[in-house]
Amino acid sequence: MMRWITAIVLLAAAPFAALASGKPVEIGYVESFDRPADAYVIVSDGVAKKVAILAPILNGDVIEVKDPAASITLRLVGRDDPMIISAANQGTPVTTEVPQKSFWSGLFDWTSASVEVFDEEQREQVSASIRGDDEKELSVPLLASPQTLVAGKRALAIGWPSPRTVEIRILKKGGQVVAEGRPSGGLWLTPAIDWKVGTYRIEIAAGGDTVRQTLQFIGPKKAPKLPAELSDPAAPAPLRASATAAFYAASDPAYVLEALQYVAPDARTSRPAKLLTLALIDGKRPAPPPAP
């Protein structure tokens, strides 16, 4: 009987014996410091080490802060909050407990977790729109309502808020395909096409979902009249394009796709154009101008 008890005690104590092996244990890292690095020293087992962001901290390290106004922030295992060391609290060995698991405590933990009595709510919020996940539902906010565009020869930009691959087709009345493609990345340009006044249909499909919408092309004279200042040649062209896009998008939700045409070509080179492009693709538009 005594032998059994001894064996069980030894078995239970084995993990703790291993932890007490005397080897240095990494317990965290340097997150930040507010003075030059040479204002601090990490003394590890009697040896001074340079301070750097992400430098490992070993159990028992001592931090020396030479500048009275300096402080250094450490992140340590088992602590939710950072440890801040300054001249006031320097010199104390940094120690913390790495979570230990013995066989018996682990077995008890596992057994109690297996016998769940109370219902733990395990719900989480999920989004029904796409964002890089091919299994989510397709969403194209730009085409939430029928869109009106100005007729004429040009490439048409189409955007959707996800880098996923989609199938796009634009059809004339009668079903003839005018443009089609299988782009990914959230933005696509058709080839330059002479868009005639009339009705077209656009279809965007991915993963079994299809979004369909009507595109109404109108003559330039029927488009909203642009303020005179937007055609001032003194203003840089990308700025005028962004302002024109903002004007169209703000004037009517039916002109959001038309607005995109002004900023999408500059999205890679102009930050304002990029921001407005992303906002339009996400279905956001500037507030309408105040009523006169």
Partner: peptide, 22 residues
Amino acid sequence: AVGLGPMVESPTGGETQLVAVR
């Protein structure tokens, strides 16, 4: 968490948790 998993030998000596998260 700063570290995840059981302890392993650190390649530079001493011990560390299996995964250091930075």
